[in-house]
């Protein structure tokens, strides 16, 4: 390790850069995916919080390649694009990220259902926090229905995205 060649192979360097950039990019694309009007197909508006899946997954698996400013950036862009209170989801995602990173030992190397359960708990906290903050921001008690639907859909879609991220992580580790 300490005797690394002075100029590491370009493939190795590319792998390292990819390991730093691609998880964030994946999270960013997930965030954008929330705005794709899927509701048109089903006739119900859900817009799952795909960004939260990315934040949770990388916070458990590899927080070192998904630093807090990445989480902040994803939350901030989500706020900017959704025209909601600026900083709301950035704050919620960061809190979730902080909590999950501190508890990640509980979930590493355990079964997938535990990993999923952890996400369920995280989304409940995130949804509740978001609802409380938004209610305070708008100065009235908002209807909790939409956020409940959103979080339920997000939890239901978690395994799919977790598998995709796993593929990405494995590819990156092989390359790096």
């Amino acid at each position: 390790m300490s005797f690394e060649p002075i100029s590491p192979s370009s493939a190795g360097r590319a792998g390292k850069i990819a390991l730093l950039v691609l998880p964030f990019l994946a999270g960013f694309l997930c965030m954008l995916l929330s705005f794709v009007p899927f509701s048109r197909i089903f006739g119900v508006e859900v817009a799952p919080a795909f960004g939260l899946i990315a934040v949770y997954y990388w916070a458990v698996q590899r927080p070192d390649v998904f630093p807090p400013y990445g989480v902040f950036a994803i939350g901030l862009f989500y706020d900017l694009l959704s025209a909601g209170p600026l900083g709301l989801w950035a704050l919620v995602y960061l809190i979730i990220y902080g909590v999950v990173v501190s508890q990640r030992q509980l979930m590493i190397g355990r079964t997938f259902s535990l990993f999923w359960l952890g996400f369920l708990v995280s989304s409940v906290i995130a949804g509740f926090l978001g609802w409380v903050l938004a209610s305070l921001y708008f100065g009235q008690v908002l209807s909790p229905g939409p956020v409940l639907v959103q979080m339920a859909a997000t939890v239901a879609l978690f395994p799919l995205f977790a598998k995709l991220f796993e593929q990405l992580l494995q590819r990156l580790l092989v390359q790096g």
Binding site: L86, A90, L91, Y137
Partner: peptide, 24 residues
């Protein structure tokens, strides 16, 4: 990195909270 990660996490949380307050 662990320590710096924690510091940057706290910094980012503060920043987000400040944005939320200022964003009004």
């Amino acid at each position: 990195r662990d320590v710096s990660g924690r510091v940057s996490l706290i910094f980012m949380v503060t920043l987000a909270a400040a944005l939320l307050l200022l964003g009004r």
